[in-house]
């Protein structure tokens, strides 16, 4: 394939971006820290809870998210690319039926939404979904 000027520019920008990003703390670690604070470093199981999120968010301002955590006492949602990773914590009371909840959240950019559930037996479960957040062409 002939290297066009556009390709060269893209390559150049890409490597510059890579270089500058490696100097910054990765955003994912803010969420990791927050999760570790919640779990005390305990292992995160997977497969017992589910997170529903769109693949592509039509608008980062209002992204519908659902979490279903049978057997959970509480569920915390994180967004690993947001300025602050905590989104919400749901504590289920004795009259909660299915330990599930839906809400609408703000996502600043393409990132992972992470749900961490504290189960009745004290263990932790995790579910993750990647949501692409786009910039509209014609916001008005």
């Amino acid at each position: 394939m002939k290297l066009t000027r556009r390709d060269l520019l893209a390559l150049g920008t890409g490597s510059f971006a890579m270089a500058s990003l490696s100097a910054l703390p990765a955003f994912a670690s803010l969420a990791d820290d927050a999760i570790a604070a919640l779990t005390g470093g305990a292992e995160l199981g997977e497969g017992a809870i589910s997170l529903t999120a769109p693949e592509i968010a039509e608008n980062g301002n209002t992204v519908p998210i659902g979490v279903d955590a049978p057997g959970a006492v509480e569920v915390t949602l994180y967004a690993d690319g947001n300025p602050t990773p905590n989104v919400a914590t749901f504590k289920f009371g004795p009259l909660s039926a299915s330990r599930s909840a839906s809400t609408r959240i703000r996502l600043a950019s393409t990132q992972n939404v992470i749900a961490v559930a504290k189960m009745e037996d004290g263990s932790f479960q995790m579910a993750k979904a990647n949501v692409k957040v786009t910039i509209g062409g014609c916001g008005g």
Binding site: N86, A88, K91, F92, G93, S96, L107
Partner: peptide, 20 residues
């Protein structure tokens, strides 16, 4: 108690919750 939610700024304008 049915549910007790702690909200952070990442919850959208006009906070909405669905639960059972």
């Amino acid at each position: 108690s049915v549910i007790d939610v702690a909200l952070e700024p990442a919850i959208s304008t006009n906070p909405y919750f669905q639960f059972d």
